[in-house]
Design a protein around this nucleic acid. Structure first.
Length: 259
DNA sequence: ATGGTGGCGAGGCCA
């Protein structure tokens, strides 16, 4: 079972590029972030005609997540518990039953800039809420995949120029500590398991020729429960996508599970 | 220190 996460930075602007990638990569499941539209604005037809079931959790203009799946999606849940006043569309869960049942989460973790400030406070509190929800889910002792744009650079080796990110919300010590607290629950960074060496990125800014200079960061992650990690066959990043016409500033990150 | 780019949607916010 191939599962990918892809921050597409707007479904309206990315539909052609997304369909091209989907036809080539053919993931069983694609977790999308930043669809930047309400549910009614999401173009379901081109995905359904390719055999994908579509579940969205959208929002006008900003944020918004979706799950595409060749297999039926069951027990779909939208939103992250822990704050009734939070109206950002950043979290969606569903269960996929292939050879075995896998719970998948698509998440778009807050950017948090500028830090310090209210946006950074929101990021850190959101990460605490995610930890609480992940802890709950891990009690089920089943394969779970938490895939998405985490907006966290976990280690220095996950940035081409770590010194440029020292004061950024994506790399501040508190952000990285909160990310490690997720790992300490017993989650595994799937890409890092398969590719321990530095120099792999999932995001290159549109500005200042970041792609041409390979000035990237690795912020899109697939965290696995122990039961999912035991099924991990492979993991990768579709870097080449970033060099195409009208690209997102992120590229797809994928895993292959024996499920 | 500033400005550099892009999406959404129609001015300014967000990243």
């Amino acid at each position: 079972m191939k599962i990918a996460t892809f921050n597409i930075n707007g479904i309206k602007a990315r539909i052609d590029a997304l369909l091209d990638w989907l036809d080539e990569a053919r993931p069983d499941i694609a977790l999308l972030q930043e669809i930047k539209t309400v549910d009614e604005g999401f173009p379901r037809e081109p995905f359904e005609s390719r055999g994908y079931n579509v579940e969205t959790h959208g929002q006008k203009s900003f944020n918004g997540v979706a799950i595409l799946s060749r297999l039926p999606l069951e027990d779909v849940s939208r939103g992250l518990d822990g704050d009734d006043d939070d109206d950002h569309a950043r979290w969606i869960e569903a269960t996929v039953v292939g050879e075995r049942a896998v719970r998948v989460v698509g998440l778009y973790l807050p950017n948090g800039n500028p830090a310090p400030g209210p946006k950074y406070d929101y990021k850190l509190s959101w990460m605490e809420r995610m930890k609480a929800r992940a802890r709950q889910m891990l009690a089920d002792e089943m394969p779970i995949v938490f895939g998405g744009d985490y907006n966290v650079i976990p280690e220095r080796q996950d940035a081409s120029r770590p010194e440029a990110w020292e004061k950024d919300a994506l790399f501040l010590p508190e952000s990285r500590a909160a990310f490690r607290r997720l790992l300490h629950l017993g989650l595994y960074d799937a890409f890092r398991l398969r590719h321990p060496e530095p120099g792999h990125y999932s995001f290159w800014d549109y500005q200042a020729g970041a792609w041409a200079r390979n000035n990237g960061i690795r912020i899109d992650h697939m965290l696995l429960s122990p039961q999912a990690a035991d099924l991990l066959r492979d993991a990768g990043i579709d870097k080449e996508i970033r060099g195409r016409e009208k690209p997102s500033d992120h590229v797809p990150v994928w895993i292959d599970l024996d499920a």
